[in-house]
C-alpha cells in the first residue's frame, strides 16, 4: 500500500482529477497549500518569463525601475506560490500508472513550477464504514 502525494498547479486541479478517473482512481484528498521550489538559475526559463511579465506591466508607469524591481522579486523564488496537494492511497502495482497520469496532466510549456510527486509507504488503512483493514480498505 502506498500514498502518493502530488503537488500541482491550482489551475490543473480539474485536469488532474479527470486524469485520475481515467487512470481508474476515484478517491483522493486535496488541500490548498503554498510552497516554493529550488532556486531557479536557468536563464532560458527566467529571461523569457521576465520579459513576459514586463510586457504585462502598466504602460503609463513612470518609474520603470520600480516595476522591474517588482518582477525580479516575483521571480527570486523565495516567495510562496499557491498549489494544490493531492494525496492518493493506492495499491503498489497501480503506483506507476497513477504517476504517469499525473505527470501527463500537469506538464506545461513553462516547465519550472509544475510540481512534485512523492511516494511514501503506508502500513495500514481502515475503512470506517465496515471496519475492514489492509488492502481491502483502499477501494
Amino acid at each position: 500500500m502506498k500514498e502518493i502525494m502530488a503537488i500541482v498547479r491550482m489551475k490543473r486541479t480539474g485536469a488532474t482529477k479527470r486524469a485520475l478517473i481515467e487512470a481508474g482512481v476515484a478517491g483522493f484528498t486535496a488541500f490548498k497549500v503554498t510552497g516554493r521550489g529550488k532556486l531557479l538559475d536557468h536563464s532560458e526559463i527566467n529571461v523569457p518569463c521576465k520579459e513576459k511579465l514586463m510586457g504585462m506591466a502598466a504602460s503609463d508607469v513612470i518609474d520603470r525601475k520600480e516595476s522591474e524591481e517588482q518582477v525580479v522579486t516575483f521571480l527570486d523564488d523565495k516567495r510562496m506560490f499557491p498549489r494544490r496537494m493531492f494525496t492518493i492511497l493506492a495499491y503498489d502495482e497501480d503506483v506507476p500508472r497513477i504517476i504517469e497520469a499525473i505527470i501527463k496532466a500537469n506538464r506545461t510549456e513553462r516547465g519550472a513550477g509544475d510540481g512534485k510527486i512523492f511516494v511514501t509507504p503506508v502500513n495500514n488503512a481502515v475503512r470506517v464504514r465496515t471496519g475492514e483493514s489492509g488492502d481491502a480498505a483502499i477501494w
Binding site: V95, I102, R107, K116, T120, P121
Partner: peptide, 17 residues
C-alpha cells in the same frame, strides 16, 4: 520524519528531488 520511496519532478518527468 517519515520515509519517501520515490519522488518525481513533473516538469521534466524525471525521478529524484
Amino acid at each position: 520524519i517519515s520515509p519517501v520511496e520515490e519522488a518525481y519532478t513533473i516538469s521534466k518527468g524525471t525521478k529524484g528531488l
